[in-house]
Nucleic acid binder design. Structure first.
Length: 1193
RNA sequence: AGUCCCAUAGCUCAGUUGGUUAGAGCGCUACACUGAUAAUGUAGAGGUCCGCAGUUCAAAUCUGCGUGGGACUACCA
């Protein structure tokens, strides 16, 4: 027999357990084994989204990484080989900004005060600064990922693979250089990424001068000359021809014929863009009004067009009319009499000058007359006079100044007609391009097309009196800004020219450059783009094959994103990043995209031959040699490659395009770049499909980040998905639901948390408290609760097992007791256990860790500990080492072992401790680690739902009896004689009988009487079953229910006898059968009764003399046990007792002497008349005596 | 502004294909238990299922419109 014992502990210290287990893992290389020991032909591919080591990890990283870890561990248990390569995201703006700050330089200084090489080296150092901290977090939280051989995005091999991917895109014609509107900071002289714009505090509310400008329609031509070619006959005379006009155009035509002016109204918050206006956009289905009214500044009669919905924003209407009810012909005050004119009003500094009260009311004009109504479509292609004719577009000027459709036009604000300046708005540029309207570009000194505002943010010379002025006062140096901004000056000019309908201040949010604090401009800039729109449909189709958790992120957020896809702006005008591998001639008509170092070396050779370069910096690079040393001989960063000049096929020099690529492309390239594909590992990618992840997980904020770039690159280059399953987790908020931030001081330090509570409790809490995709309100007290409730209970259960197993020298050496030979309760917990395996397996399989965790903890707390162990305690410490006892040990052992395995993905440390504590003694399973074991397989044949049902009955009955006892203040130790339960059907009776013993011992009652329904004493109630009746009788359901509820006891008996009844409801015959109602017992007259959910229990509470004595004896046993314990005796020690006699207990002791002695291992019990040395014990209220206890030899 | 998520007891969360008395844990109060004891049991208090409208015989559940919180994207007159 083995002498080894199960480990016993004095207390549970989860952080210490984690430390010990971690040491074991490292000593035994458990992680490595968990990979190598699994079948390499059964890979489960996981991609690690690379964090940036530039910043410190937060508690949310623990969350995100726990999720990744859980499924990788689970799949490992299921026998898959799960390689997990760590990675580092090393490029990008945050790194650069940090370095600039540290070095005290700005972007402009790079290349001047410091060489790009020095700068890049500083970035390289900075970015890996916190790798140790990250590695520690990874270790401590038990995230298994291979940190020894991570992919690093700044390494030459990685960059080479990225270049190869770019080369593929270039080859497929998916890369182009384009001119687009981008956020631009004139003061900093640089474009800004959306990332930069989303820095906190960038969007600020500012008050700008806004202007509703009047764009005057050109005269509508009704007559059109038809040329000869179009005539069928041979007449030579051109014939005047009446062009068909739609009704609104007719109306405008009529007005114009009368010498009246007609204007479009369009609003802008940036009047400085008005000189660059080239079009007006309308919503094709929006309703517009043509209104005769008056200009409040010039006092002139005018006719204007604006959206119907916005009419009431500018015009006063009577209280009893709603704006949507306005129709043509409605009018307010007539416009009779002399036009109101007041030149002073125009020149007044005050921009908002009200008309006299009779003309304007609360800023709304009260003189108006609705002349016509139309929809936007009717207005399209109408032409208007250029508002501020300083310059003309250098090309297609004849196509400008027209009304075009814009699907983004709304009637939320403004006028429902949008001023379009294609050079200063992304939407503007798009609709203008779609409609063939040119942007306001003029040719500069070098005949390059440029907008009317230069890169410093000043108006160009073409702008007359505005030339040289900054478009925003903020761009002037301190103290140099003029009193009136150009926005104000332009507004005044428009007022003077009867071109401003309304000018006012307006507060809105506008982005500012986070570095200079100045407002940004939207400005056309040159960039390299990836034509993602070309593969949009394919990306949408492939996305439908991806399993998103939660699904809504995939269909909703991601799906919509794909539907509205724009081309991917790849360019970044920075230094520390992957250079765009494109070399171009000056004119741009010849270019090459380099896809490998080998190719670059060869191209340089050509260039040397052509005389553009003198030596080859890649001369030492050995082609085909994949050693790190070979790849360390050069550097593919900007500082290195910008010196390389290549030669074009026609013999011209080609220089590298100066931009870097978006860092998101770096990380999106990782599936292949981490393996240096296609230069190495070709088979892994092409044959084993390791380029497609079975599973990835990141925060939901990565939807348009990493999730997108992975998907886009995989679709474009390989035409397959990059991942099959993806979990996007929510945020970790503080306990009040606020976002965690260092600024608010509510950020939780992950290391402190892990140290204090241990990784297991932290992970368990995070996973079970909220679904991964819901935001988690992180509360440290929640971890304490998990510690106590789940781990504490599990630990106690193991402790209980170990204590008695060691006493009995149980080591699981005996053969399995056949399940059929085990008692009901064992079979029950085994059934529950197998149901649990099934549920947990399914939950993990469907990426639902929360379900898995909650199921496990319910099993451990409610079933295993609070029921199985509690009810079985006696079996463990009472009697011989019988088969029943062995069955109990085996059952409990199995439960603990399986729980350890099921819980191990979530709580890897404690589970391992528990599992190895068990396995090391029994030799069962893998004795090194739970993580090297195999996921338990469910044994369907032992799942017994009837048994689980019966146990539910037992639990419910017990609970009800205990409740009754409580009401009557009868202690559980006081035995009672009888329990009565009405039986309504045979199944219930059988089920109850099979668990009767359990109930009786649990509630300390001697017998159960089954009340068959013959006596007629039971009071019953009947309830309609809505689920069956509802579909059948629908409308009269309520009345049926009312009638059934009215059934008398007689009606119910009648129903039972006939197994049904027919009632009449609202003249309709309603057939009820036994499925249509539920009949339950409600009361047993004359008894102490409890009813709950159809189950009724009656308790006989008469206490006979024998019962009373037995109760006293039990009290004694309890007191003696306490004394034994207080005296420090071993559980196995025998004792001798002396009890001071007392009239009320003597008989009770004598009549139950045998019972007392066996229960307490008492070899000798004397009731004595006198006792000096004993301890006073209270048996009942006002009933005490003395007991003396000593060890018996 | 658009898209998405969330809203149920003081707190954290469950709530099956819609079915009539909406649950659990924690916390609180009281009692009990005491050979798992830094545990455990029982009972009690605690709810406008965010609001409004609709579909339905029947809505916490489905639909629409709002409100509040959060995220992402955009910045557009």
């Amino acid at each position: 027999m083995s002498m080894s014992k199960f480990n016993e502990y004095k207390g549970l210290n989860l952080p210490n357990v984690a430390k010990q287990v971690l040491e074991q893992w490292e000593a035994n290389k458990v992680f490595e084994q968990s990979v190598t020991s699994r079948d390499e032909n059964k890979p489960f591919v996981f991609f690690e989204g690379p964090p940036s080591a530039n910043g410190l990890p937060g508690i949310h990283h623990v969350m995100a990484r726990a999720i990744k870890d859980i499924f990788c561990r689970y799949k490992t248990l299921k026998g898959y080989q799960v390689k997990r390569k760590a990675g580092w995201d090393t490029h990008g703006l945050p790194v650069e900004l940090g370095v600039e700050k540290e070095l005290g330089i700005t972007k402009e200084d790079i290349g001047k005060k410091i060489t790009i090489e020095e700068y890049n080296n500083a970035c390289k150092e900075a970015v890996m600064r916190y790798t140790d901290v990250w590695n520690n977090l990874t270790r401590q939280m038990g995230y298994w990922v291979d940190m020894n051989d991570p992919y690093i995005t700044y390494e030459n091999k990685y960059i080479e693979s990225v270049w190869w991917l770019l080369g593929q895109l270039h080859q497929k014609g998916l890369m182009y250089k384009g001119y687009t509107i981008q956020p631009y900071s004139p003061k900093a002289g640089t474009g800004l990424s959306s990332h930069e714009l989303n820095q906190p505090g960038c969007y600020r509310d500012v008050k700008d001068t806004t202007c509703v400008a009047q764009f005057k329609l050109k005269g509508i031509e009704k007559e059109e000359v038809i040329t000869i070619d179009e005539l069928h006959d041979d007449e030579n005379e051109p014939v005047p021809h009446l062009k068909p006009l739609n009704p609104i155009q007719e109306e405008i035509y009529r007005l114009q014929q009368n010498g009246e002016e007609v204007f479009f109204l369009a609003w802008t918050t940036t009047p400085w863009t008005l000189p660059s206006n080239t079009a007006l956009a309308v919503g094709s289905k929006i309703s517009y009004f043509l209104v005769k009214t008056i200009n409040q500044y010039s006092g002139k009669h005018i006719n204007i067009i604006l959206a119907k919905d916005l009419f009431s924003k500018y015009f006063e209407i009577s209280d009893n009319i709603k704006s949507k009810d306005l129709i043509v012909g409605n009018h307010m005050l007539t416009l009779a009499g002399t036009p109101y004119e007041n030149p002073e009003n125009i020149l007044n500094d005050d921009l908002l000058r009200d008309l006299p009260k009779e003309l304007i009311n609360k800023g709304r004009i009260s003189h108006w007359d609705i002349l016509a109504e139309c929809i936007g479509n009717d207005l399209i292609s109408l032409e208007y006079e250029q508002l501020l004719p300083y310059a003309q577009p250098y090309e297609n000027a004849d196509k400008a100044f027209r009304v075009i459709p814009g699907d983004f036009v709304t009637t939320e604000d403004g006028t429902g007609i949008v001023h379009i300046a294609p050079t200063f708005g992304a939407d503007d540029a798009k609709v203008a391009k779609d409609a063939g309207v040119p942007p306001m570009l003029v040719l500069d000194e070098n005949f390059n097309p440029v907008p009317l505002v230069d890169l410093q943010g000043k108006f160009r010379p073409e702008m007359g009196e505005f030339a040289g002025k900054y478009v925003k006062n903020e761009y002037y140096k301190d103290g140099e800004a003029p009193e009136k901004s150009v926005d104000v000056e332009i507004s005044i000019k428009l007022k003077e020219e009867n071109k401003a309908f309304k000018v006012e201040k307006y507060e809105h949010s506008y982005p500012h450059c986070w570095r200079t604090d100045k407002p940004i401009l939207y400005y056309p800039l040159d960039s390299w783009f990836i034509k993602t729109t070309a593969v949009k449909e394919r990306m949408i189709a492939l996305n439908k094959t991806i399993n998103w958790k939660p699904e809504s992120t995939g269909t909703g957020r991601f799906g919509n994103w794909l539907e509205n896809l724009n081309d991917w702006n790849l360019s970044r005008s920075r230094y520390w990043g992957i250079p765009i591998p494109i070399w171009r001639t000056e004119t741009g008509d010849e270019e090459i995209c380099i896809s490998s170092v080998e190719q670059l070396k060869a191209e340089i050779e050509k260039s040397i031959a052509a005389g553009f370069m003198t030596n080859n910096p890649l001369a030492d690079f050995e082609i085909g040699n994949m050693d790190k040393t070979n790849y360390d001989k050069f550097d593919l960063h900007k500082n290195y490659v910008d010196n390389i000049v290549l030669v074009s096929p026609s013999g011209k020099p080609m220089k590298r395009e100066t931009d870097l690529i978006d860092v998101w492309f770096d990380s999106g390239s990782m599936p292949t770049a981490q393996l240096h594909y296609p230069f190495e590992n070709k088979d892994l990618i092409e044959k084993q499909q390791l380029g497609v992840a079975d599973f990835i997980a990141e925060g939901v904020d990565q939807t348009r980040g990493w999730f997108f770039t992975l998907h886009a690159i995989a679709t474009m280059v390989f035409d397959h998905v990059a991942y099959k399953n993806v979990v996007s987790n929510g945020l970790v908020l503080d306990k009040n639901g606020q976002k965690m931030s260092k600024r608010l001081g509510n950020a939780v330090d992950p290391f402190e948390t892990l140290d204090k509570y241990g990784p297991d409790a932290t992970r368990w809490y995070m996973i079970t408290n909220a679904q991964p995709w819901d935001n988690l309100k992180f509360d440290l007290e929640g971890i304490t609760e998990v510690q106590r409730k789940f781990f504490g209970t599990l630990y106690n259960t193991y402790g209980f097992f170990a204590l008695y197993a060691n006493l009995d020298n149980f080591t699981y050496a005996e053969a399995e007791v056949p399940i059929a030979n085990r008692p009901e309760i064992d079979r029950w917990i085994i059934s529950k256990l197998n149901s649990l395996i099934k549920d947990v397996d399914a939950a993990y399989h469907t990426y639902e860790p929360t379900r898995a965790g909650r199921a496990i903890q319910e099993f451990v707390n409610d079933h295993l500990s609070n029921w199985y162990v509690r009810l079985c305690r006696r079996r463990f410490w009472k009697g011989d080492y019988s088969e029943d006892k062995i069955a109990a040990y085996q059952t409990l052992y199995t439960c603990l072992e399986v729980v350890a395995q099921l819980a191990s993905p979530i709580a890897p440390f404690y589970s391992d401790k528990l599992y190895t504590d068990l396995a090391s003694i029994s030799g069962k399973g893998n004795t090194t680690s739970v993580h090297l074991s195999d996921f338990p397989t469910v044994n369907e044949s032992v799942i017994d739902t009837d048994l689980e049902q019966r146990m539910d009955i037992a639990q419910q009955v017990s609970s009800m009896v205990l409740s009754l006892r409580k009401k009557e203040q009868i202690k559980v130790r006081q035995p009672l004689q009888k329990l009565m339960i009405p039986i309504l059907n045979a199944t219930f009776k059988r089920q109850l009988q099979e668990v009767a013993d359990l109930i009786l011992s649990e509630v300390n009652v001697k017998e159960i009487e089954y009340l068959e329904d013959t006596s007629g004493v039971l009071v019953k109630s009947i309830k309609p079953n809505f689920k069956t009746l509802g579909p059948k009788y629908g409308k009269i359901m309520k009345q049926i229910a009312a009638q059934v509820n009215q059934f008398t006891q007689n009606d119910i008996q009648e129903f039972e006898r006939n197994q049904g009844a027919t009632i009449t409801v609202e003249g309709q015959q309603v057939e009820l059968d036994s499925n249509d109602v539920e009949i339950i017992t409600q009361d047993i007259p004359g008894w102490l009764v409890q009813t709950e959910g159809g189950l009724t229990v009656a308790l006989d509470i008469t206490i006979s003399k024998e019962l009373k004595e037995e109760g006293i004896a039990r009290e004694f046993v309890n007191r003696i046990q306490n004394l034994r314990k207080d005296s420090g005796f071993e559980v196995t020690d025998k004792i001798a007792l002396k009890i001071l006699q007392h009239n009320e207990i003597n008989e009770a002791i004598n009549n139950n002497k045998n019972y007392i002695c066996t229960e307490t291992l008492t070899s000798r019990l004397d009731v004595v008349n006198e006792l000096n040395e004993g301890v006073s014990v209270e048996i009942d209220q006002n009933l005490s005596t003395l007991i003396a206890i000593e060890k018996f030899n």
